[in-house]
Amino acid sequence: MPSNDNIIHIAIEFSTSVWLVGTRLPGAAKSRMHRIDAGDSKALLTLVGDLRARRVNGLDQVAQLVCCFEAGRDGFWLHRLLTANGVLTYVVEPTSILVNRRARRAKTDRLDAEGLLRVLAAYVGGDHQVCSMVRVPTPEEEDAKRPHREREQLVQDRTRFENRILALLATQGIRQRPSLRTWERDLNALRSGDGRAMPPHLLAELHRLRRRLVLTMELIREADAERTATLAAAPDEAASQKVTILQRIRGIGENFAAVLVREVLYRPFSNRKQLASYVGLTPTPYQSGTMDRDRRIGRSGNPRARTTMVQLAWLWLRYQPGSALAAWFRTRVGTLQGRTRRIAIVAMARKLLIALWRYTETGQIPDGVAVRARA
């Protein structure tokens, strides 16, 4: 880690219209603020060039540039740009920064930039507990996440259109949606709860919703076909191999396997604690005096992967009833329902994630798991 005596710290506070760039020279008591248009990478590189040309401590010694900014809607392109131009760049996890707990905390872009400069100086100085830094994926890893994330959005759109159709029909006393295959015939035969024909404007809206629903379903099938083709095009790729071996386990389909691999299992983990923490399935400790217990899960990790694992845990009970994990759940919960069952399924999701990680890394099949025959 470089010494702070020879470092120019740079912090960028983003907004949709203006970027506020805070800089602090070695030994300086105050920082300087520079305003540039949002997305103006040329102006930012010009500022970086001016800072690089400075001499520090009155010597012919070129300072090292270290930059940070918060992870957000701008993604990681700026990290790659600055890194390619010789600037050591960090991406800060925004929720990991400690803040003043006063009820009315002042909030300005300048104060945020000053705070980022202090955090950066502490982190570079060796205090890695002051915040968490994001592991920046490669462009290929980032692009590989797009198919299942697009599919997730399309599934949400499909559900929204279906619910809207049902809600409009419910206003007329109709509880069942017409079939998409025989839409025209079924819709014309419908009568409201008081025996009237469907109003014309409502019919027009329903027809448009049906077209949007059909289009969304076609896009979902197109996304599924593209995912299958991508997997078949590179069968020797490490991520593709992990997707393939996960699908051998009964109850894990291509979509669940792709989400787990592209969101979680493509990364290296040293131990199971790191894995569970990344997904956000670890409990939050609470210790004060004689009280020492675990509270609810932290939810500080990948929310998409966490949701997928909880869904997969429920499916595991159905498709893998003879596995050791399903037996553990039945022994632990028994016939209890409600909150106890929901808490236990989260604990099982954590155990299942660790078991699948070991399976993809070492080939060790979880105890009692039924697998499909090889293709």
Rank of each mutant, 00 (worst) to 15 (best):
R212Y: 02
S179G: 10
E205H: 07
E218Y: 02
M217N: 10
R164F: 04
R177L: 11
R210K: 12
A167H: 12
P199M: 00
L168N: 05
R212G: 12
R164K: 07
A167T: 12
L213G: 05
T171D: 10
S192E: 04
T171L: 07
R196D: 03
T216H: 02
L215R: 12
R175T: 14
G193I: 00
P178Q: 02
Q176W: 11
R211T: 15
D186Y: 12
R210C: 12
L168P: 06
V214N: 04
A167W: 08
A197T: 15
P199Y: 01
R208T: 14
A204T: 02
A189C: 10
D186A: 07
T182K: 14
A204Y: 04
N188L: 15
L187I: 14
M198L: 15
L169H: 09
P199F: 01
N163W: 06
L215I: 07
L203A: 04
L169Y: 03
P200A: 07
R191Y: 02
G193C: 00
H207D: 13
P178C: 00
L190D: 02
R177G: 03
G193M: 00
D194H: 00
L206F: 03
E218L: 05
Q176F: 04
R164N: 07
R211M: 05
M217E: 13
Q172A: 02
G173Y: 09
R191L: 08
G173S: 01
W183V: 06
M217H: 02
R175M: 13
I174R: 03
L166H: 09
T171Q: 10
L202Q: 08
P200R: 12
R177T: 12
T171H: 04
R175K: 13
A197I: 15
L169P: 08
T182W: 14
A189M: 09
R175H: 14
S192Y: 00
D186C: 02
G195R: 03
V214A: 07
P178M: 13
I165E: 02
N188C: 14
I165G: 06
R208L: 07
L206E: 01
T182R: 15
I174M: 11
S192G: 15
R175Y: 11
L187M: 11
P199T: 00
R181P: 04
N188R: 14
T182Y: 15
R212E: 13
I165V: 13
P199E: 01
V214Y: 03
R175S: 15
W183Y: 13
V214Q: 08
E184A: 06
L166M: 06
S179P: 11
W183L: 07
G173D: 03
A170Y: 10
L209E: 08
T182E: 11
R191H: 09
R208S: 08
R181K: 14
T182P: 09
L215S: 10
E184K: 15
S192M: 09
L190S: 01
M217R: 11
R181T: 04
N163C: 10
L190A: 00
R191V: 02
R211C: 08
M198T: 12
A197S: 05
R164E: 06
L219T: 06
V214T: 11
L213Q: 12
R177M: 14
